[in-house]
Amino acid sequence: MTAWHLDPEAIRLYAQGAAPPQLAASAEAHLMKCAACRDGISAHVDTRRVEAIWQEVADRVDAPRRSWPERMLVRLGVGEATARLVAATPTLRGPWLLAVAGVLALAAWAAQFDERFLQMFLVVAPLGPLAGVAVAFAGGLDPTREIGLAAPYSGLRLLLIRTAAVLAVTVPIVAVAGLALPGSNWLAAAWLLPTAGLTCAALALTARVTPVVAVGVVAMSWVLVTAPTALAGHLHLAVGIGAQLFWLAVAIGGSLWLAITRHTVTIKLGRSA
């Protein structure tokens, strides 16, 4: 307890934030110890302002810390909520990305020694991003998939956001591996349009089957067509100029299909979920 108390004028100035620094510091120290002056000041305090300040403090204290990918995305202009959804994409976890990079590095390394392996790289390259899309929505790897499916957020939109995130990360990995291929020829980029076409085809198929099945069907078809042609030395049939135009058409067709059906498409839940 103390015999000295803040006078009414000092209380008014402090409450309005108009007290000079010395008075403000003195008043603050005194208020910590004096219940009578705290009672005295309460009548002068704008309760709405206090409430707003308290909410701001609470929000700063317990609001989620943004991970560095989230911070980077927000800096790039992506909305805070979308950045959080991207950051939770299962495929963007380190071990999975390392596995993709490892497989592609091995394929690029093998291509240094044998022409057939060079062609097999082109067979393998689109599978990395494609597998990433499947993993991004696989029941076993996305623990909140079922909760997400019961939420009003568009399943297709979530799938597209995650697909974009997966492609943004895996395509550069494949591109780096492609640059390591022997010779500086068109092969280093020949996988890009097939990847785009296959991804769009898989996404379009999600209207009928689960994302994992859709990717599985598309990937299997790609391998069944391209692997034998690569082994026979006719890979240009799958990635040559004519094929590139075909994949471009598939990518555009798949995108248009998604755009047309975006309000009616339903992401399906597999039995195992």
Binding site: D62, P64, A81, R84, R145, A151, Y153
Partner: peptide, 29 residues
């Protein structure tokens, strides 16, 4: 019910709140 195990409790519920289309940050929190 699965969880992103690296998330804190607040972060996880906040994540689901985004899926429930609560996009305004302050109101969501």
């Amino acid at each position: 019910a699965g969880f992103h195990r690296g998330f804190t409790v607040f972060e996880f519920i906040d994540y689901v709140a985004i899926l429930k289309q609560m996009t305004e940050r302050r109101a969501r929190h």
